[in-house]
Write a protein that binds this DNA or RNA. Sequence first.
DNA 1: CATATTAATACGACCGGTCATATTATAAAT
DNA 2: ATTTATAATATGACCGGTCGTATTAATATG
Lengths: 198, 198
Amino acid sequence: MPKVTKKELKRENLLNQGVAMLMGHGYHGTGLQEILDAANIPKGSFYNYFGSKENFGAEVIQHYVEPFIAQLAAHLQQSEIDALSAIQHYFDELIIELEKNEFKGGCLLGNLMGEIGDTSEICRKSLQSAVGRYRDLLQSGLAKAQQQGTVRSDKSAEEMADLLINTWQGALLRMKIEKSSAPVKQCCKDLLEGFFKP
Amino acid sequence: MPKVTKKELKRENLLNQGVAMLMGHGYHGTGLQEILDAANIPKGSFYNYFGSKENFGAEVIQHYVEPFIAQLAAHLQQSEIDALSAIQHYFDELIIELEKNEFKGGCLLGNLMGEIGDTSEICRKSLQSAVGRYRDLLQSGLAKAQQQGTVRSDKSAEEMADLLINTWQGALLRMKIEKSSAPVKQCCKDLLEGFFKP
DNA sequence: CATATTAATACGACCGGTCATATTATAAAT
DNA sequence: ATTTATAATATGACCGGTCGTATTAATATG
């Protein structure tokens, strides 16, 4: 096996463990040691892969959002299902996952926006990009739903995408402290089955 | 001056500095030393006032929410103004304050829900209580607005209060990473001037 | 002088990050 | 093709500093 691939593999392993650890204990609550231990990589090797903890955090953010974008995109391009239903199914899947985790963690983006969104410029930029990419995809789905007549057209898809993302993020915070999926379920009901209807 | 009062004064000073520091750098990002330095209180004295950092955090949360509740209550009991307008004016004031702080900090409750909402049980309970008290007050204002006919009555005041709080929290996170008040302004517009209308 | 309250100091654990060195891979030279 | 020189990567001990907390000394109160 090529050496460069092996290095990439370890790098990705660190990112995966980083996602899990930062979700669980936050940025400042997680030490590099924990991440390295979880990935079975020696302490001294960390800086062969990343320039600093801060840079690592910024990469973790991008690494985290990727599967969510892929998952939503997969739902949206199922041609036999209308866009609004696709979005609803997507969020239903997220809720199932949240319940499986007993409402712990929530969304890494939301957690880090609150914790380091205005102290680490590098991570702020990364968060901005990650949320932006996610928002753009959701917006395209809502625009499609507008064309299909399942979502109101007197509000822009962009406005609704932002509203949905923001309400979802707030609902995730509530979920964490209430230990209940009621807030996130209500979010979907209020918006997707209520405010967004034509 | 009575001794007990002097002690209470220093205690409250610590809580005030704690609010400011935890807002700026989060729970794990803030050391007790910084707080004690800011309050001009010797390091060894901390445990004369609080049992632990975690207990301190839980108290800071309650200390933080108090003025917001008082401010909203003050708006709501202005008899010459209808409840919906009172709520709108209240949020307008919050937005002005956020702009004054250049979008830094946001809401301590939201930040801590994300960071330690599912790791510190004590703080989780405190957050639950703080948000609950705030929600109840907002709910009573919305119920009043329903009676005055300025807010729709086919949705419960509780549901709308939760939705407003959650969307507001999410919008605050977006505000932090976009460095713009657009998200929070849009939140008020979408809900108070849109979804909540009869 | 006895007692409680405050403050100084001590403590071990851990933080992010650096270092010289060991190992391995690549390139050059024979 | 084999050996030698060079570079890249891997590694664990270790840096100064800070963490939250415990213990001990000093001070104030009765």
